[in-house]
């Protein structure tokens, strides 16, 4: 009997604690994941009554969770697709852009080529162009490095650079972005794509053009003023009815301090 009373008292106490806390669940894109983790950590330090759980899985998974209500905020590295919009139409979904991610196209520093058009990139990644001399380089075989198909950047390249065509079967796929930088740095004919934050001296980044006239290199400035084409916004999506609950956190992410974190993590701030 005593035990039961103790147990009841303990549960009561625990409930009293949890009631005071605001619990926010954030789920989705693995690209946005490190950013959200950092933001949540900082936010919880300042607001001890808030509890934020951040889970990855991929943009599609986060959006699906928004549909069945198992998350409050969906992180996404792409906009909603038409069919997702259809499924979410009752939820009055709101979107916030929390940062921008730019993809650099990298080659080995020994490579003469310093710029490529979108069509040339499409040819290289789909396997239609196989030698560097076809795009003004030396007579070397092109070695294409890509991320595994589970990566969000894999899809992003496919949709925005390759005209939704499939990668060539000869593409080498590596499990991590760091491995791509390493391999491109030590392979002469290599080409790959990485987030802006991963650039280092071991590799050379290329200027890219979508119109065939102006070639731009990836940089924070070029991504911000939208002159660099291979950049994508990073989104938070949430249901309209939950606005009051998630607003303080989202406001924090968009604040000067939150945006500083965005740049620390390696993305581009929206301010």
């Amino acid at each position: 009997m005593k035990k039961a009373i103790c147990l009841l008292a303990a549960t009561g106490l625990m409930m009293a604690f949890t009631v005071g806390k605001v619990e926010i669940k954030v789920k989705g894109s693995d690209t946005v994941l490190p950013l959200s983790q950092k933001e949540a950590e900082n936010y919880m330090k300042k607001n001890t009554d808030a509890s934020i759980t951040v889970v990855g899985g991929g943009s599609g998974i986060g959006i699906a969770a928004l549909e069945d209500g198992s998350t409050d905020i969906a992180m996404s590295s792409r906009d909603l697709k038409v069919d997702e919009k259809m499924k979410l139409k009752d939820k009055k979904i709101k979107q916030v852009i929390v940062g921008i991610d730019a993809l650099s196209i990298i080659v080995n520093p020994k490579n003469k080529v310093s710029q490529l058009t979108r069509e040339q990139l499409e040819g290289i990644f789909t396997g239609a162009i196989v030698n560097w001399k076809e795009v003004g380089g030396d007579d070397d075989k092109i070695i294409v490095y890509s991320r595994e198909s589970s990566s969000g950047t894999y899809d992003f390249m496919k949709e925005h650079v390759m005209g939704k065509k499939n990668y060539a079967a000869t593409v080498l796929s590596l499990p991590a972005t760091g491995a791509i930088v390493q391999s491109v740095g030590q392979t002469k004919g290599a080409i790959g794509y990485v987030g802006l934050a991963y650039l280092n001296k071991e590799v050379k980044d290329l200027a890219v053009s979508y119109d065939g006239k102006t070639f731009v290199k990836a940089s924070i400035k070029a991504a911000k003023d939208k002159t660099y084409p291979i950049a994508r916004p990073l989104y938070y999506f949430y249901a309209g009815d939950l606005e009051a609950k998630v607003k303080p956190y989202i406001d924090y992410v968009l604040s000067a301090e939150g945006q500083k974190t965005v740049e620390e993590v390696g993305y581009i701030s929206v301010k």
Binding site: K141, T187, G189
Partner: peptide, 11 residues
Amino acid sequence: VQKTFNLPVGE
């Protein structure tokens, strides 16, 4: 491996 066999790619 890449250097020894003079290959375009070592993987």
